[in-house]
Design a protein around this nucleic acid. Structure first.
Lengths: 337, 337
DNA sequence: TTGAAAGCGATACCAG
DNA sequence: CTGGTATCGCTTTCAA
């Protein structure tokens, strides 16, 4: 493996000049910089990671903790991991996966041995145990998701409350006075952070706008299509003229299928809005108005905050909510009721 | 952060003794070892990662390269990543995610800066570009999957050929003389490594046993249930009395559904075997005989080989095929044809 | 604009 | 069985 002194010799300069030319932390004359860059390229030099970590004050690695629960939606999860990794790379960072059975053990380890500069916390639960740990360790942590007790933490997330309210407003504006919300699996309302937030926001705004609201979770994690369809029926039979979906892709498909089976057209008979969907909706039988949860935005912001936490004093602790965007694809029409 | 000299002072020994007590590379008296361990625990000491990398000959990190393609099956993919991370941790290793747009760039980077001790290569394509790179760099690589050109590489995989043959044998033994194979999406036969291997093995064994074989891929990546059902019909109408499935979970569900719709019982009217499924089949409407692809086995073996590659000379290059296991759940019966 | 040299915190050799 | 210390490759202060 090529070392910095070989580059220095090849370029006819000192070691420190090479270091500075590469880091840009000190001006280097155009001429020597060019000779150095050439040498680096020709020798295929890359600064030794261990030496850099030891001598410098950066490891150039972020940790990503992600507990895997049974109800974890793999595609969504993957999208977040990918988006994080890409955002990190754009800042010269690599991502270390922490998947210890005990999520906290992993965090503690990397915080104790200085392997990473910051920890990105994924799949945050309302009562997440990593919250307490984050407060103890000195390695900065950025939460992608908002735990109940988030005092002094750095958190990033879609503004779920605003998203839920926005969906209701849109429907109320078009005259709908009875809407249904199809939600996540039951367990998600206990174990996950955002489903309750959406639910509460939708309930609150519906109340404000004097709209009747029916709510049905998606039931069990692997609920059959029939079971989900029954829940759709329940809402429609209750007089709902519009449905808000805060659900997985397969539930979206079942809903569309059910409407078709019942001979209901969208938006003619029923209006449809999807909230906080982060999957590829282009594979559905028909497009649906959506207020999407864009992993790329959240993760890029999280990485950005992590970078800032390494320099800024004090850190940008607090909630960083991403404002929702309504994508109109024509599936919300005027109410006929 | 606690350093080794603090531990040494607390325990009243030299820093070298602390180091040896922790690594076990030199005998340490029971008494002093105990004092050291106590000090380590009380101070919460963990050897600095950078210093260890620089001074030692191990980084204690593995890289995991995993290109994401459009047809990547997220749950399966996640299972492999998780299994790898767990196996690595059991060997004291952490896992670094390489998800650069250009997979090779990432490999090259970590190979050049010595960040990792070995690279685990996931989601291997038949003509994978990472093969050539693996031969150039000095960091050992272990492929989970087998590229066409695997000369001198270390590869781990389920013995897909044996698995395919085993499925055919099982059916042929019970008198089936006309079987159908439902496969992966079309693109997988071009881009992925194992689908063609299963197909060829099934074809070959069918020929040997004088069994008629009908083959249908799963069509497009997001083929509709109807499209898949049509393929099932084609095989059954062609006289197949048994089906071999080498497909995703959703295709399995469609097949079961289609058989029920046609009023066919399993194994009464049609026998069923699933080959190389790595997903949780317990959520299907009915269990199916399966020759599973167990991510845990493959990944544990891969990590094991990586560990060996760090010490053994010469490395254990070559194919490491995991023998298939047949799990009998009673969905293969005697042919009535 | 450039160089020399002092660490960073472990590991492992050489002594005792 | 235990200590001292050179060493790993880089970053960064101090000097010029």
């Amino acid at each position: 493996m090529v070392k910095i002194n070989e580059v220095a010799e090849a370029a006819g300069v000192s070691i420190s000049t090479v270091s500075y030319a590469l880091s840009g932390k000190r001006p280097v004359s155009e001429a020597t910089r060019h000779r150095i860059e050439t040498a680096v390229r020709e020798l295929g030099y890359s600064p030794n990671a261990g030496a850099r970590m030891l001598a410098g004050d950066r490891t150039h690695i972020f940790a990503l903790t992600e507990p895997f629960r049974r109800d974890t939606h793999a595609p969504t999860h993957m999208a977040f991991v990918l988006a994080t990794a890409i955002a990190a790379r754009q800042n010269g960072y690599d991502v270390l996966l922490l998947t210890d059975e005990d999520a906290q053990a992993g965090m503690q380890r990397v915080a104790a041995n200085g392997l990473v500069d910051a920890i990105l916390v994924l799949d945050v639960a309302p009562d997440d145990g990593r919250v307490a740990l984050a407060r103890q360790i000195s390695t900065p942590a950025v939460f992608i998701g908002i735990p109940d007790d988030h005092d002094g933490l750095i958190c990033v997330d879609l503004d779920f409350e605003a998203a839920g309210a926005l969906a209701v407003d849109r429907l109320a504006d078009r005259g709908h006075r009875n809407i249904g919300l199809i939600g996540q699996p039951d367990i998600a309302y206990a174990k996950s952070n955002f489903p309750p937030r959406v639910l509460r926001a939708v309930e609150a705004r519906a109340a404000e706008r004097a709209v009747r609201l029916g709510f049905r979770s998606a039931g069990e994690v692997d609920a059959s299509a029939a079971a989900v369809a029954a829940r759709v029926d329940a809402l429609l039979d209750g007089g709902a003229t519009a449905l808000v979906l805060h659900a997985t892709d397969s539930v979206h498909a079942v809903v569309l299928d059910r409407l078709r089976t019942r001979g209901l057209s969208v938006p003619g008979d029923v209006s449809l809005v999807s909230v906080a969907a982060s999957f590829d909706m282009s594979t559905l039988a028909q497009s649906i108005d959506v207020i999407p949860l864009v992993p790329d935005s959240s993760c890029a912001l999280a990485v950005d905050l992590a970078m800032r936490a390494l320099t800024t004093e004090p850190p940008a602790s607090g909630l960083h909510l991403i404002p929702p965007t309504y994508i109109d694809l024509g599936t919300v029409g005027a109410s006929r009721a």
